[in-house]
Write a protein that binds this DNA or RNA. Structure first.
Lengths: 231, 231
DNA sequence: CCTACCGATCGGTAGG
DNA sequence: CCTACCGATCGGTAGG
């Protein structure tokens, strides 16, 4: 349920072949240098990404030093640059990973409920509930970083991210159009979408998982606010 | 219409007494050094605030150097520290000025329309329209800085700002309660307020004054989205 | 991935 | 408000 992209990458992680060879017995002459690196690479890189996401979210990109990130991942100060060309590349990787994961999770949620949710309300509720999960659920630092640190990436990176964002937003359009057609959404669809995403995304600024409302409560409130729906 | 707090501070600015003495005629012996400083102080400080607000908004607090701000205000690198104790104090001053101005403008808007707007819809429309103006109108860098740079101030400063924010939000509560009472707002009032402010505040991230919708269009869309109102 | 290090930049200050 | 400056920190790199 959390960060399926990371998990799928974990599953796809290359098996530590040389280490196995050594265990099996065929003379491991010389240090299996390159192989050892390969074995750890995915893990260490992922650890850097998670540490960076957490710190970028809590303190902001420019207030976080690469030394902070390295320390949080249990590395020395220069080591992040073995995995990422620059601090900016690390930031962009966090955002890209976050969007990839979000798109995948949304796709899965839509597939899972494809037959059961016929009407527009239910579809939008599903999208909103899933959005809150991506934004506020466990391990949810990547998307807030993307939302609130976009000033710190290059124009080219922003353009690339915009493509991913389009993928994410694509399933919302037909649902909103349908609701508009049957009169349940009165506002201009494009502005309504922007305002709705604002209402949802802003929750990353105030929502506290450990107190108050649940994500289901938030979803109810949003649906009621947007459509006067009483569940 | 813009930044009335600044204006009222301007009005309260100490009269350049010595300069007046000189003008009245009694031999201006020596450079009126100290007096010249006094006379300009309010202006220069305001210029620093405006430059800082613009840069903090565009690049973020940590990505903006005090040298940037000084240059934008036509000063040398060390001069901002004549007006502000630290870079952080400058950031907080921007936020405080923004909130003071916003509260004042909201108060004025409410007074101006006190008799004409009887029903809840009209009152909320007024508050929303005014909010968009504060957030997106000309010279509107202060509030976005407050909204998006609050990580960079101290806990004490955040607490002080929270008081000002309460003042700003106070007039919204009874309006929302009334709409809830007469069934036009179905969602929990507290959550609805947070979601609504999210929808409004997020516009600072995407709204472009030079193209697309006007602030009236935005207000219409928001009212339609929240209440299905067709103007 | 670590060690040792560099050049640049930055917030801030003294002294006028 | 300017000039000249300091100590600290930072992103990044070479070389292993």
């Amino acid at each position: 349920m959390e960060r399926p992209v990371a998990r799928s990458r974990s599953l796809a992680r290359p098996v530590p072949a040389a280490a196995n060879d050594a265990a099996v017995g065929k003379r491991p002459r010389g240090r299996p240098r390159k192989t050892a690196l390969d074995r750890d690479d995915g893990n260490r890189r992922q650890e850097l990404l998670r540490s960076a996401a957490r710190l970028f979210r809590r303190k902001g990109f420019h207030a976080t030093s690469t030394r902070d990130i390295a320390a949080a991942a249990g590395m020395q100060s220069g080591s992040p640059f073995y995995h990422f060309k620059s601090k900016g590349a690390l930031l962009y990787a966090v955002m890209e990973e976050g969007m990839g994961s979000a798109i995948l999770r949304q796709q899965l949620a839509l597939q899972r409920a494809q037959e059961t949710t016929a009407n527009g309300h239910a579809q939008l509720r599903l999208l909103i509930r899933n959005h809150f999960d991506i934004l506020l659920g466990p391990g949810s630092d990547f998307i807030p970083v993307m939302l609130y640190e976009s000033r710190s990436i290059t124009a080219r990176q922003r353009a690339l991210l915009a493509q991913l964002q389009s993928c994410y937003e694509a399933p919302w359009a037909p649902v909103l159009e349908a609701l508009r057609s049957c009169g349940q959404l009165r506002a201009d669809v494009k502005l309504a979408r922007l305002l709705m995403f604002g209402a949802l995304n802003w929750s990353a600024q105030w929502y506290d998982r450990r107190q108050g409302a649940s994500l289901d409560d938030l979803t109810d409130a949003a649906m009621q606010l947007f459509f006067g729906e009483t569940p």
